[in-house]
Amino acid sequence: MLTAFRRMLREWSGLQAFKRIPRKERTLVFYSEGRGYWTYFEPIYKALQENHAAPILYVTSAEDDPLVQTPLAGMRSFYVGEGSVRTLFFSTLDADVLLMTMPDLQSFHIKRSPFSVHYVYLHHSIVSTHMIYRAAAFDHFDSILCVGPHHVNETRTREQQLGLPKKILIEHGYGRLDTILDNGRQGPPERHGAPIQILVAPTWGENGLIERHGLDVIKPLIDAGLRVVLRPHPRTRKLNPEMLDKMIAPYIDDPRFRLDENADATTSLLESDIMLSDWSGAALEFSLGLERPIIFIDVPRKVLNPKYAAMGIEPIEVQAREHLGVVVTTDKLAQLGEIACTVAAESKKWQTALKDARERWIYNTGKSGETAAAYLVSLTKQ
């Protein structure tokens, strides 16, 4: 009870501190759902500082967000939690521009402010807008920073089908992909006799790979002599912690196995030869950023919009599978070790195709931060 009270007091203090900022200084606000989301904002923040010297107000729902205790240059930060204080923050927001990665604005308890705020959506996945998101997830934003042509096509098609007002669509790109590319680690890593490493990075939900198949995915990989890094989706940890702990218990002390729940997955990505996934957007980041192949397990699609097919556009995450790796049916899980070794051995041949796919599907590779920063600054000057 005392801990909850102290947390509420911190949240309320954060909101009041934000409101004390003079209105003329509330030009550009970033809202972060949690500490793991900074990776999507960071390239934009850097470009804002380096190219425009534009200060930001950073509002976060993560109690352990390091940027609250140690804000970066040009940043003032505020913690508002994820309960009633956050709801009040949104409903009373008076600022020029709000940049956020959280969809479903206006659909539930997070509403648009009555003040004249320009809401900009920043995609935190390469995947399409109409299958794994709720139908109206993006309808109430003023602008959308689009990862690639698929986002533009899907958004315009929905607007036309429903008679919605046209949003401003910016050919942005994907900052996290740029960060991965900046590491210069494209292609298979040098092993020098060390075992192949496979990153198991599924999505969450009742059809997620871990939720449906658990140990049947991990065991054949370890039995084949591979090093396995399991990176569960944060929502799996939040919704099914006991299931996850029970699944990893047999291997928790095995040197061939590692559980990675770090908010920033970059290290695990860079060090892995291949990825095993289902419908996770992380698969597109891995393959397009590192030019390394994916093994997709053919579990049922993750669908939050049951009417997604009415758009008449196949989601990019469905289209991409045949271009990014191999698809394995669930009746072949026992053969995963052998399949993984084969895919890793052929990893080099995938490089050119994956690089070409990146150029077709992603805007402004290597320049997304500068593109977004220039647009956001233009909004503050209107």
Rank of each mutant, 00 (worst) to 15 (best):
H151D: 08
L269Y: 14
E206L: 11
G369T: 09
E171T: 03
D64V: 08
R156C: 09
K24N: 15
Q335H: 11
P55M: 06
G289V: 00
N262T: 13
L57H: 09
M275C: 14
E11M: 07
F18C: 05
M247H: 05
K24I: 08
E159V: 10
F41C: 11
M75R: 05
I144H: 09
A353R: 15
M75S: 06
R86T: 14
V326P: 03
D278E: 00
D142W: 01
G214F: 05
L145S: 08
D94C: 03
K367P: 01
G205W: 07
V127S: 15
Y251M: 15
N207D: 12
K349I: 08
T39D: 09
E25Y: 09
P165A: 10
C146M: 06
V127W: 02
L270P: 00
P189I: 08
V97H: 08
P255F: 02
E33V: 12
M102T: 12
H140T: 03
F286E: 00
K24H: 15
L72M: 15
H172G: 01
L105G: 08
T101L: 15
L290C: 09
R191I: 11
P202W: 02
R86W: 12
T60C: 08
I297S: 04
V85G: 01
E154A: 00
W12R: 12
R76E: 10
I198A: 13
T87C: 08
H52I: 05
I339Y: 15
V120D: 09
G214E: 10
F138L: 11
L209N: 09
E346S: 11
I21S: 06
H150T: 03
G34N: 14
G208K: 14
S107G: 05
I294T: 12
V120C: 10
D139S: 13
K24W: 15
E338W: 11
Y119Q: 02
E82A: 12
V328S: 10
R86N: 14
R321D: 06
M8V: 11
A282F: 12
V59W: 00
K246I: 08
A320P: 00
L215V: 08
S128E: 04
P149V: 03
F5I: 11
D94Q: 14
R321Y: 06
T179V: 00
F78G: 02
T330Q: 09
G83E: 14
Q319K: 14
V127N: 12
C341Q: 13
T101W: 04
T155Y: 04
G81H: 02
A334N: 15
T267E: 15
V80N: 02
I252F: 05
H118M: 00
A17H: 04
A53G: 14
A357T: 04
L122A: 02
R10W: 06
T92I: 03
R227Q: 12
Y45K: 02
T365Y: 04
G281K: 03
V80W: 03
D278Y: 00
D245N: 15
L93F: 01
V85S: 00
D264W: 09
S368L: 02
L288M: 09
A201W: 00
L48R: 01
H233E: 01
